[in-house]
Nucleic acid binder design. Structure first.
Length: 661
RNA sequence: GUCCCCGUGGCACAAUUGGAUAGCGCGUCGGCCUCCGGAGCCGAAGGUUAGAGGUUCGAAUCCUCUCGGGGAUGCCA
């Protein structure tokens, strides 16, 4: 049920006398911003008046259009308002019939698109071998929600987790194993031990890098100080016109100075941390070239060194177990997990092809694709012969086109990689891979409570798993506190309590992430997410549980509700009923918006609105004590369908419901 | 230096992509439990959408400039 589409059909017929492009103008139908203007509004009269040759004003056009429209079976007579809005109010009869028709439909009235070309969604894509952290939430949760939603709309969806399983992090683990690893311990407890080795070596590498950067940072600070002093002098001497420019230069210099100073401070902190550590300190001295040696281990792996390949084969399954445990807990599944290693054998071909086509050329010993629209080239092979992620991405793209023949490929990746994808798509176009719609579904940064990005290097980063545990613990404290539990009959056993805490806690994190528009940054605040009041998943889950309880008390099965409706019909006696049903038939609209923008926050918004409309209904319209059988049948139908819709909506966000909480 | 993104009540975020009086939540203040579950509902206060111009019947949204914040920028991903 997509009311705007229905109305558009009628508008197209009526618009044929006004324009050659009736579809374009008919598409200007949307929900009203204020219910007093009706349910939907058509905004086409104003732009039509602009095109009008005989100088008719928008209200005249609107009146002529209304006279031609045939909407009696859907709407009350349209009203013209303001500069020329056509306001449409659905007939109650239309709403009640729609509700009766949708009842028991497991698609909640949402039409299924007919297409056999799949949409490939590339998301999550963590680097294995390092622990997943809060920064991995966004791609994982947004991608999963898009996959669920598009699949529900009827698109064949192929999900692919483009695992980082071939990069420097394996050089780190291999180095760690060779120098600090105890084979027996690794054998008996691989996941923890490998993570530990990663942490040790990574810290030592960071230590080396920090040490090396010290002189340069100090020099930068000295230079910047000088520039600042000079700029200050200039500002003092400058007159009107130069003054502004001088101030700007000064501000820029001060920013550079501040940046360098914080860089120095953090480098010194890293160094101190290692040197003061009784374990790491001596290791840092003994492994003075650890940074380059780690790269060499990686290079050996890529060259096919038997020992490193064998270690990689041994470690990779454990690394995958580690992330799969988290995916299982998040209820996230992939059709394919084709990591970078899978494409490694194809990279030589890709670069050769690009050279043959004259797209790639040598520059400073590296193989580069130069693009007219970009200053910097896309480097596809380094001076040392190693390939880069751009190369892998091209190979991946080529593989996906031949393997899946998709209509779209979505890359759910951090917005900081925008330029990379712009280049990738541009090269793909030149490369003859343009038969597909490529979309970088970018997203903003997760910020800490201080408003600064949560960076991987900060050291004190919250691991994803402990984060989930915290959320679930907190959910349990609130949901299962003893004062609440006494009200439940039969009492909740420990298993039910755990299930509820899990659904509410995990749901809170997903919901909070998805509630923000994907392109904006947001501050991560666990307290608010799990607060269980306000705009949270718990509010929606709770609404669901209330409806479940009513249906249970009514002792009415799905079939019973349908039979009651057939017997008594559907009829509104309270405005809250009408408002809720109107909200419910707009489910498909919300899902289409999610697809159009690849933005699940529209679905979140819809679910909150729906839950709110339900709460008002619940306050005003008693179901079980309804005045008549027909009113009771109507309200049962509303509760039943609302429950279905909220449950489905949450499911499309990847969030579970529980029968009571 | 160049390019990209952002700036919305005290806080944190929306805004159907140019539509009517800019919304929701938290917080604050005031109401509502003989009511299917009060994790709720109703009401109030709080905004020159960073600022200045421009385009338009109509601008948070598009254009120009200014201020402020963040990001990217040839051998990481």
């Amino acid at each position: 049920m997509h009311v705007p589409h229905l109305l558009q059909q009628r508008f197209i017929d009526a618009l044929k006398d006004f324009t050659d492009r009736p579809e374009q103008y008919a598409s200007m139908i949307r929900g009203t911003s204020d219910p007093k203007h009706g349910d939907y509004q058509a905004n086409c009269a104003m732009p039509l008046a602009k095109q009008s040759k005989d100088g008719k004003n928008p209200r005249e056009i609107a009146a002529m259009l209304v006279a031609k429209l045939e909407l009696d079976d859907i709407c009350e007579p349209p009203e013209i308002a303001g500069p020329g809005f056509i306001n449409l109010k659905l007939r109650d009869r239309f709403l009640t019939d729609s509700l009766a028709n949708m009842l028991g439909d497991d698609r909640c009235g949402v039409a299924q698109v007919e297409t056999d070309k799949p949409i490939v969604i590339d998301f999550s894509s963590p680097n294995v071998a390092k622990p997943m952290h809060v920064g991995h939430i966004r791609s994982t949760v947004i991608g999963d929600s898009l996959a669920r939603t598009l699949r529900f709309l009827g698109y064949p969806v192929v999900t692919d987790n483009h695992l980082g399983d071939w990069g420097t992090q394996f050089g780190i683990i291999i180095y760690g194993y060779k120098h600090f690893g105890d084979p027996d311990v690794v054998e008996s407890n691989p996941v923890t031990e490998l993570a530990k080795l990663y942490r040790i070596v990574n810290q030592l590498v960071e230590y080396r890098k920090a040490s090396k950067s010290l002189p340069k940072l100090k020099q930068t600070i000295e230079d910047a100080r000088q520039v600042v002093t000079e700029a200050k002098d200039t500002v003092e001497q400058a007159e009107d016109k130069q003054l502004k420019k001088a101030k700007k230069t000064l501000a820029a210099a001060e920013r550079r100075l501040a940046g360098a100073e914080t860089g120095l401070a953090s480098a010194e902190e890293k160094i101190l941390k290692v040197e003061q550590d009784s374990d790491l300190g001596p290791k840092a001295i003994a492994h003075a070239n650890i940074d380059t040696e780690v790269l060499e281990e990686t290079a050996k792996l890529h060259r096919g060194d038997p020992e490193n390949i064998s270690l990689w084969n041994r470690f990779l399954p454990h690394c995958k177990d580690e992330i799969n445990r988290i995916y299982a807990r998040l209820d996230i599944h992939f059709d394919h997990t084709l990591g970078e290693s899978f494409y490694h054998p194809m990279l030589a071909d890709v670069t050769a092809k690009l050279e043959q086509l004259g797209l790639a050329s040598d520059s400073d010993g590296a193989l580069c694709v130069f693009l007219p629209e970009f200053d910097a080239p896309m480097i596809i092979r380094k001076q040392d012969g190693a390939y880069l992620y751009a190369t892998t991405d091209l190979a991946t793209l080529e593989y996906r086109l031949t393997e899946f023949n998709p209509s779209e490929i979505l890359y759910v990746v951090d917005t900081r990689q925008s330029e990379h994808f712009e280049k990738l798509f541009a090269v793909a176009d030149h490369f003859g891979l343009s038969e597909v719609k490529l979309v970088h579904v970018n997203f903003g940064t997760v910020l800490g409570e201080d408003g600064r990005p949560m960076k991987t290097r900060s050291g004190t980063l919250i691991g994803l798993e402990s984060l989930l545990n915290d959320a679930v613990d907190r959910a349990k404290q609130v949901v299962c506190n003893p004062e609440r539990l006494v009200n439940f009959d039969p009492p909740m056993d420990a298993e039910e309590q755990d299930n509820i805490a899990e659904a509410v806690g995990i749901g809170a994190i997903k919901f909070a992430d998805l509630s923000h528009h994907r392109t904006s940054d947001y501050r991560f605040n666990l307290d608010k997410m799990v607060a269980l009041d306000g705009n949270t998943s718990a509010y929606v889950q709770y609404s669901y549980a209330r409806m479940q309880k009513i249906l249970q008390n009514a002792n009415a099965s799905d079939d019973d509700v349908a039979a009651l409706v057939r017997e008594h019909g559907v009829e509104f006696t309270h405005i809250a009923e009408r408002n809720l049903v109107l909200q419910l038939i707009r489910f498909e609209e919300a899902l289409n918006t999610v697809h159009k923008d690849y933005a699940p926050n529209h679905l979140v918004d819809y679910l909150l609105e729906t839950a709110k409309a339900y709460s008002r209904f619940n306050d005003n319209c008693h179901v079980l004590k309804a005045e008549s059988k027909s009113i009771r049948a109507t309200r049962l139908a509303i509760v039943f369908h609302c429950k279905q819709t909220l449950g489905k909506g949450l499911n499309l966000l990847g969030i579970d419901v529980v029968p009571r909480m």
